[in-house]
Simulated scan of single mutants.
Amino acid sequence: MIEGRHQIKPRLILAVLFSLLLTGQTAAQCILTAEVGRLVEAMESAMARPDGISSSDAADLYRRAQRVSPPDVADRLREAGYPANTHAVDMLIREARTVAQNRLVMSQNVTRLRLRRVEKLRERVCAAEARLEMAGNGSKTHGGAGPSGDEAGLFTGSGGAGNVALRLGMVPVTLVSVVGTIYLMRLGYVWIFALLFNRRKCWVPARLKIGVDVIPGHMSILGRKGCRFQPESPELSLRMEAQAPCIDAHLIVNHLVLPARLEAVHEGFGVVYFGGMLGPGTQKSLLAKSRIEPTLVPKSTPRPKHARTRQPRRSPMGRPETSGAD
C-alpha cells in the first residue's frame, strides 16, 4: 500500500471526453425507427415503477408496441448493410404487450435484457452508418434507398480498397474508445478500493515507535489496512527514513498500541501497514480523534522516491515479511 497523490492526466481526460462526445452525438442523431425509440422510452418508464403502472400508461404502452413496424426495422437494417433480422425488436414488442396486459414488469432482468439487445442493435446500425460516412461512400438515412453493392461489400468483406479505407478510418476512433475505457476502469478501481477499505483523509495525532525510537506526528490518511504517517518536522521524517523499512514498529494513538510495519518513506511521510486489518469500530474510534473532517480518498500507487533499498530489520524471534503492497 504505497500511498501518494492521485493525479489525473489531462490527456486521459481529453480522451474520455472525446469518446463520450462521440457516443453522445451518435445516440442523439441516430435511431432505429421513431416508433422503436418511443417504445423503449415507455418500457424504461415501466421498469422504474416496480409496484405497477396505471391503466392509462398500460394502454399507452400497448399502443406504442402496436405501432412498431418490424418491416420498417428490417429496411433500416438493410440500409446499414446488415441482415434484416428483427428478432430483438420482435421480442421487445412481445414483452411490452405482456407488461401492458399485466400492468407490471414481471421480471426486471428479462425486460432489461430485451432492451439491451435492441440498444445493441441500434448501436451496430448507427456505427455502420458512421463508418460508411467516414469512408466517403455516402451516408444513409431512414426512409432512403438501400445500400449499393459497394457499400454492402464493406460489411461482407468484398469491398476491396473501400474496405481497407473503412478500417483505417476507424483506427483513431477505436484507439480513443479503448483509452477512454481503460481510464474509466482505472478510475473505478481506485474508488472501489477506497470504499472497500474505507480510506479516509484525516489528521489524527499519533506516534510511530521503531525499536526504542518514538517519532511524534499524525496519521494523514487512514484505511483498514494501514495509514500514511506524517512526522511533525522534516528532521523527524529523515530520522524515520533512516530506519525504513522496518517490520517491528508500533503505531500509538493515546493508549491504543497497534503492531505495524513501516514499509517505505515517500516525500516525507511513512507508508505504514497494520499487523492485521482494523475492525470498523476501531477505525471509527480513531477517525473520531481527527482534527479535520474525515473524507473519502481514492487509492493511488506511485513509486516511492525515498524508500530505502536495504533489507528490513529482523525481529529477535521472526523473519522479515514481504511487503504485500497493493
Rank of each mutant, 00 (worst) to 15 (best):
Q7N: 08
L14P: 00
L20H: 05
T23R: 03
G24D: 11
Q25A: 09
E35F: 07
E41G: 06
M43R: 02
M47H: 04
S55I: 15
Y62N: 11
R63G: 00
R63P: 00
R63Q: 03
Q66V: 04
R76I: 05
L77F: 12
L77S: 02
E79K: 08
Y82S: 09
L92I: 00
A100G: 12
Q101Y: 12
R116G: 08
E129C: 05
G143T: 15
G146R: 15
G149C: 07
A152R: 15
N163V: 10
V164N: 02
V164T: 08
R167F: 10
M170Y: 07
S177N: 13
V179H: 00
G188P: 04
Y189L: 12
F193T: 14
R199H: 09
R200K: 13
W203H: 10
V204Y: 04
P205K: 11
A206D: 13
C227H: 02
C227F: 01
E232F: 06
L238H: 03
M240I: 01
A244R: 03
V257N: 08
P259R: 08
E267Y: 04
L287H: 11
S290W: 10
I292Q: 07
P294V: 09
P298M: 07
K305M: 10
A307T: 07
Q311Y: 12
P312E: 04
P316R: 14
